[in-house]
Design a protein around this nucleic acid. Structure first.
Lengths: 208, 208
DNA sequence: GAGAGTCTAGACTATATAGTCTATAACTTA
DNA sequence: TAAGTTATAGACTATATAGTCTAGACTCTC
């Protein structure tokens, strides 16, 4: 069969669905090929190993998210960077579950080739650079504490706000953005804080 | 061998260490018994299955954490409940890794007996009751949004602040408490907020 | 249309792991 | 000390899964 019936992307798509539905452990080669009704040989013709499939899936997912994040930071808009997470999650529900419900190590525990390794390292490095850049502009320094603060408002808090909803397979409601925004202003301060720390106002903003 | 060489707790301890070090997937029956130099028979004499071991480990871990949390809520001190997480994590590093780095489903995917099932359900119910109680006192209601806010400040944010440090196998530094506190005051407001939303003060509080 | 290259097809192998089963050693109690 | 109880001991089975291998079907080019 000289004409390909399956593209590499088909296997990645199937893997993404399976991982989003039942976790990365459910992404067995048999499960993936069964879902596509493809023979095993066709899988291994394209991917050297299951580890590689999962590694590529993870990297693609992280990069897809990070693109908008880095852009926002480079535009000097920290709040937009923080709010990029819920926005992206709403548009990419399956990928979002991979990114927020599991860790890198659930995907890439094994040995991967240099190319993938470099890809992941580059990604981490670009992300850290963004955090440092933001830390510098928001907290006046790039020491460990300032970077940690940046990570907190730009990544940890958005994840924390969204995760429970993904766990219940819901789309993150608007309340999530509000919580991220309020936290952002509390930690970063300044800017266009719509209200002061007195927060009964926050609590009642979006209840209906 | 009429006198027991191993207590059930020995297997739980070994399982906890393994899970903390390499994740719950590394808690195989072989790995556990190898670590204790115990025969397989001795394991299955005490635990009906691997699932049961992991289930009991998870439940014990959650309950150990929750005790202090619920007590703080019942004492009417929301901030103490939020700060209980970093305090508990510092005292229970291994258990903390289970609780914060993995999800319930990594431990209890299989079938468990009614007793365990009830234990987990009870635990979840007590936790929700605490959240509702706090939501009522802090946000004046127990509707879904108010409970979600409660979960955010009391559970999600503390987890988010701590998780990166556990991932690096560090003890959570004091900065973590500060971030939790600042977020708490931003969302809950009122109370004894030590500073207003202008946060250059927060940023410089604990840099040295 | 012959030959080369591409991809499908799926049986087969190797290995890790959960769980079973039988024998027996070490205690306990009458 | 005999009988009964409790636990150790580890070989064995069953199953899931990653990965290999060979045959051959399809397509494209000359």
């Amino acid at each position: 069969m000289g004409r390909a019936q399956f593209a590499p992307g088909d296997f990645l798509d199937a893997a993404r669905s399976l991982a989003a539905e039942h976790g990365p452990a459910a992404v067995t080669v048999d499960a993936v090929t069964r879902r596509l009704d493809a023979p095993k040989g066709s899988f291994y013709y394209r991917f050297a190993s299951r580890d590689l499939l999962l590694g590529e899936l993870w990297l693609a997912t992280v990069l897809a998210y990070q693109e908008g994040f880095v852009a926002a930071i480079e535009a000097g808009d920290g709040l937009a960077a923080a709010l990029h997470m819920p926005a992206w999650v709403r548009r990419n529900r399956e990928a979002a579950r991979l990114l927020l419900l599991y860790s890198r190590h659930d995907f890439v525990q094994g040995k991967w080739p240099a190319a993938l390794k470099r890809g992941v390292a580059d990604q981490a490095q670009r992300f850290m650079a963004s955090l440092e850049r933001f830390a510098h502009s928001a907290f006046g320094g790039s020491d460990a504490d300032a970077v940690r603060r940046a990570q907190f408002v730009l990544a940890d808090v958005p994840m924390a706000a969204i995760r429970p909803h993904l766990q219940r397979r819901e789309s993150p409601p608007p309340l999530v953005d509000e919580l991220i925004r309020a936290t952002y202003h509390a930690i970063v301060g300044g800017g266009a804080a719509p209200q002061t720390a007195s927060s009964s106002s926050i609590a009642s903003t979006r209840s209906g």
